[in-house]
């Protein structure tokens, strides 16, 4: 299948390894990947911080860039949630009814990375090997925004050598919340401290998730504490092989 990658702005800038991993997994499974260089951002940061007008322009740009894509793969649950929850409302508030039709036509083709693998490509086993102890943080947008549910776990379970440990209160927010982490840094840090404690208690070597935003937050604290636990996007684990380990 032809998969068009929407890497998302922060993965592009801060976590290129996640993008490379997505490409590696999809190509290994025999699919072709396309990356439109014109792509930028879904508008989530602006929308969530109160800059809806700016977000609208980003939505329009996204619709233009991905208009002809067959399948859009997004390795970020929160960006997918942004599109599904807010694009229709933003479009409905615009005078041009065509935008609403574009959104309606676009959304069924947008897949979060795990959804794409499990639901569309039916590839729960990606042929990965990752001989490490891993725990999974269920991000808010993967649970409540996109309802990805158990899919990340299904994918992890099929990875050779991987030992999975459940994260207590995995569904609790890590406290990132986009600009919340800056505007309400103290509360954000309090939430983060609970999350980090839970992760450390599992004795896992690696904490994974389907959102690099949360992992950047959690990983930042683990690094500050010199805790010796790595944060890796799920795609990077799925891309890992004994020849090319993550």
């Amino acid at each position: 299948m032809n998969v068009t990658l929407f890497i998302t702005c922060y993965n592009d800038t801060l976590f290129p390894a996640t993008g490379k991993a997505v490409v590696a997994v999809l190509e290994r499974l025999g699919h072709t990947v396309d990356f439109p260089q014109a792509q930028t951002c879904c508008g989530q940061m602006h929308y969530n911080t109160g800059y809806q007008n700016d977000a609208r322009h980003m939505m329009m740009h996204f619709l233009k860039v991905f208009r002809d894509a067959e399948i859009v793969c997004v390795p970020s649950a929160s960006c997918v949630a942004m599109m599904r929850e807010h694009f229709p409302k933003m479009a409905a508030a615009m005078p041009d009814a065509a935008v609403g039709r574009d959104v309606t036509a676009m959304l069924p083709r947008v897949y979060e990375f795990c959804e794409l693998l499990v639901d569309k490509l039916r590839s729960v086993d990606t042929g990965a090997t990752f001989p490490h102890t891993v725990t999974l943080h269920s991000t808010c947008h993967s649970l409540r925004g996109t309802k990805i549910g158990e899919r990340p776990l299904q994918l992890l379970r099929a990875v050779r050598g991987l030992s999975y440990v459940e994260l207590p209160q995995a569904d609790q927010c890590c406290g990132f919340g986009g600009t919340f982490s800056i505007k309400n840094a103290d509360v954000s840090a309090a939430l983060l401290s609970d999350k980090v404690r839970a992760i450390l208690d599992t004795q896992a070597e690696v904490c994974t998730a389907v959102d690099n935003s949360c992992l950047m937050h959690i990983g930042g604290a683990l690094s500050r504490q010199r805790a010796g636990v790595r944060c890796l996007h799920l795609a990077e684990i799925l891309a890992s092989t004994s020849g090319e380990p993550a």
């Binding site: 808010c140 409540r144 925004g145 919340g177 986009g178 919340f180 939430l191």
Partner: peptide, 8 residues
């Protein structure tokens, strides 16, 4: 702004 928008 006193919310992480976690949706719970």
């Amino acid at each position: 702004f006193a919310s992480t928008l976690c949706g719970a």
